[in-house]
């Protein structure tokens, strides 16, 4: 129960740097949704969480999805709830956006755009990297 998990937060536990790397397009596979749900769960543990969107993962953040026709949940709206879960570090790789003809204006949430070298450094300083 989340009520229970909430009681567990705020302990004296060590804060680690967790990075969740999203590299899959939404809807075609379950990875994007699963990755997002794991991030929401991880928020209960008060860790230093970053989310990275690279390769096809940048497609997860596209504005204006309408999933009625394929009868699945439009979880792109859920990225906008991350702020309320205190997950504010969202990074997108510039090369991945460029390769897909996308810009920040096409995305549903505010992100920090990093070049590949900056992204590499950010990854290198994490304690845990979880990839989807």
């Amino acid at each position: 129960m989340s009520d229970m998990m909430d009681d567990m937060e705020g302990g004296e536990g060590v804060v680690k740097k967790f990075m969740f790397v999203n590299r899959k397009a939404p809807h075609g596979t379950i990875y994007a949704l699963e990755g997002l749900e794991v991030v929401l769960v991880s928020a209960a543990f008060d860790q230093d969480v970053s989310m990275v969107f690279a390769d096809d993962g940048v497609y997860e953040l596209i504005k204006g999805m309408n999933t009625k026709g394929i009868e699945v949940k439009d979880f792109s709206k859920t990225y906008r709830a991350l702020d309320g879960y205190d997950i504010e570090k969202l990074y997108v790789e510039k090369a991945s956006m460029d390769a897909r003809g996308l810009t920040e204006a096409d995305l549903i949430v505010d992100v920090t755009v990093l070049d590949s070298a900056e992204m590499a450094n950010l990854m290198a300083e994490q304690d845990v990297v979880i990839s989807y």
Binding site: A25, P26, H27, Y59, I62, K63, G64, M65, N66, T67, K68, G69, I70, V72, D74, S76, A99, R100, G101, L102
Partner: peptide
């Protein structure tokens, strides 16, 4: 879709092939 790396491949292919895309899948992906 426009602007992507695969766009050129599709454009070239259209000389010989009929290319279709499924609307509901385009909608779902914005």
């Amino acid at each position: 879709t426009k602007g992507g790396v695969a766009a050129a491949q599709i454009q070239a292919a259209m000389a010989d092939l009929q290319i279709y895309a499924l609307g509901p899948d385009l909608d779902a992906r914005g």
